[in-house]
């Protein structure tokens, strides 16, 4: 058994390197770095040049991941608190096509459309949160039900057709600054700013600390004075906010409200969040991990495109890489556990 002085000694000696080794985001960060290095080397040997690290490609990747990233922020909070939301992909289609319908067919203005989208998006998530928090039914199945409902409404709105909007929501496409071909647009800035806000909220507010408590042990959280039911409700409401923002952003980028625009998005987002170290069982995870997870997934598909891999192989390879990333995380987690057991 260590004495107290001893403990403090080892603590101060440990320093940065050791803290990094034990940090929960280290595995995913390593995967990210290794992947970038591998892609650069492979591309260099195959093609003799490195387009992957060009300014244009980097801003391209960032733009592509920003929508998934904004989704992932909400999903991370939902999942840390012990929930899950399968409805977000179809909700994206519903909100996207709905907004397109309002602006194109009903000729609503941008501001009214955005406001009503926020009200509807947050409201529907609150409704789902109400059912999930007031019953003991698994959020998995409730959100699955909502998923199907959104899909149905999407088809009712669009009748299966795409709704093209021209000259709408252009502020969400605006260029913030550019350095040669490295272009930073509003979605990227939005993603970064929202990430920082969420990270700060999680770290420096009671609300943020309580997300972990609710996901870690609901019972104990209730006894520690947390109104668990309302807390979950709030989390889904916040998730609604992020879903709506992400939907607007994607609609602006595509310029078209397509029924299929969000299909499969929930799986992509959940995969990114879990690859980033958030536990499906709740109580564990963090926003930066999720951001790395989103980047890893985004870079996989981008790199495979650049390397000219056939889309059919892309699915197989990205599946294998996801499994690889999670397995790496699992084993490094085990190692940390063993080490701390030994210390105790």
């Amino acid at each position: 058994m260590m004495t107290l002085e001893n403990k403090e000694n080892t603590m101060s000696r440990s320093g940065f390197a050791r803290r990094m080794r034990q940090h929960e985001n280290t595995p995913i960060l390593l995967v990210l770095i290794v992947m970038i290095v591998v892609v650069v080397i492979v591309e260099f040997f195959l093609k003799g040049r490195v387009n992957f690290l060009s300014g244009m490609n980097i801003s391209n990747v960032l733009l592509q991941v920003s929508v998934t990233g904004i989704f992932a922020l909400g999903m991370t909070m939902v999942m840390i608190s012990g929930g899950i939301d399968l409805s977000i992909g179809n909700m994206l289609s519903f909100l996207g096509t709905g907004m397109a319908y309002l602006m194109k067919t009903a000729k609503w203005g941008e501001t009214e459309t955005i406001l009503i989208a926020l009200v509807v998006g947050i409201g529907l998530q609150l409704l789902m949160g109400l059912i999930i928090s007031r019953t003991k039914i698994e959020p998995f199945i409730i959100s699955l039900g909502f998923m199907s409902i959104y899909r149905g409404f999407t088809y009712l709105i669009t009748n299966g057709r795409e709704i093209t909007i021209i000259g709408k929501l252009e502020f969400l496409q605006a260029v913030v600054f550019r350095i040669n071909k490295f272009v930073v647009t509003v979605p990227i800035v939005l993603f970064i700013v929202l990430t920082i806000i969420v990270a700060l909220v999680i770290k420096y507010t009671k609300f943020g600390r309580r997300v972990y408590a609710v996901g870690g042990n609901e019972n104990a959280a209730y006894l520690a004075g947390i109104n668990v039911k309302n807390f979950k409700l709030l989390i889904y409401g916040i998730n609604g906010l992020f879903v709506t923002i992400a939907s607007m952003t994607l609609l602006a980028r595509l310029g078209t409200g397509a029924p299929v625009m969000g299909f499969g998005k929930e799986i992509e987002v959940i995969a990114a969040v879990v690859v980033g170290g958030t536990a499906m069982s709740g109580g564990k995870g963090n926003v930066w991990g999720a951001v790395f997870g989103v980047l890893v997934l985004g870079i996989i598909s981008n790199a495979l495109n650049i390397l000219g891999v056939s889309p059919h192989y892309q699915f197989i390879i990205s599946g294998l890489l996801i499994i690889f990333a999670v397995v790496v995380g699992y084993y490094s987690g085990l190692r940390t556990v063993k080490r701390s057991v030994k210390k105790a």
């Binding site: 972990y212 408590a213 870690g216 042990n217 019972n219 104990a220 006894l223 536990a279 109580g283 564990k284």
Partner: peptide, 9 residues
Amino acid sequence: QSSGLFLIH
């Protein structure tokens, strides 16, 4: 364990 602690924290 079930109602006092957050074991994984």
